[in-house]
């Protein structure tokens, strides 16, 4: 199947749940397994939370944009902010690296996004914002996965 969506919302924490819910509904026709669904939700949550708390520092007036497409059993998603940007992308993607330890961030977001997706790409310019692109492939629907 083919489908496409765009969602924009204010950079406030309450919208983390909104993004997860919307994207969960969007991929529901793929009949994902429970594990695929919760991994996908986690990716969405990590990327959107980063845009809100790092990109915009929860400014409550800028907009986070999520765009997603379904092509057969592959989902592509981009999460875009026009916020502060990332100083050093390679360093940011290292496990345990965080610029906000005082806010009890663990620095695991990018590690989780990498592990739970089938490809991630980060484009960022200091002062201009960040675009995180993912791809996740969903397994073919089999009798076993339907029985879950």
């Amino acid at each position: 199947m083919k489908n496409e969506m765009t969602l924009s919302f204010l950079a406030i924490e309450q919208n983390e749940a909104l993004a997860r819910m919307a994207l969960t509904c969007f991929i529901a026709p793929l009949d994902p397994t429970l594990d695929e669904l919760s991994e996908f939700k986690t990716i969405v949550s990590e990327a959107v939370t980063n845009a809100i708390i790092h990109g915009y520092e929860c400014d409550g007036k800028s907009m986070v944009k999520v765009h997603a497409t379904i092509d057969d059993r592959s989902v592509k998603m981009t999460v875009t902010d026009e916020g502060m940007g990332i100083f050093d992308i390679e360093q940011a993607m290292e496990p345990m690296f965080t610029t906000k330890p005082q806010m009890e961030r663990s620095g695991m977001g990018f590690t989780i996004m990498e592990s739970f997706s089938d490809g991630i790409r980060v484009d960022s310019t200091l002062g201009n914002g960040t675009i995180v692109t993912f791809e996740k492939n969903f397994s073919p629907v089999t009798e076993v996965s339907r029985m879950r």
């Binding site: 997860r20 919760s38 939700k41 986690t42 949550s45 990590e46 939370t49 806010m103 009890e104 961030r105 663990s106 695991m108 977001g109 989780i112």
Partner: peptide
Amino acid sequence: GFMDSAGIGLILG
């Protein structure tokens, strides 16, 4: 029902 890295941060803290 769901947890992301924020849960890790909370527990580690």
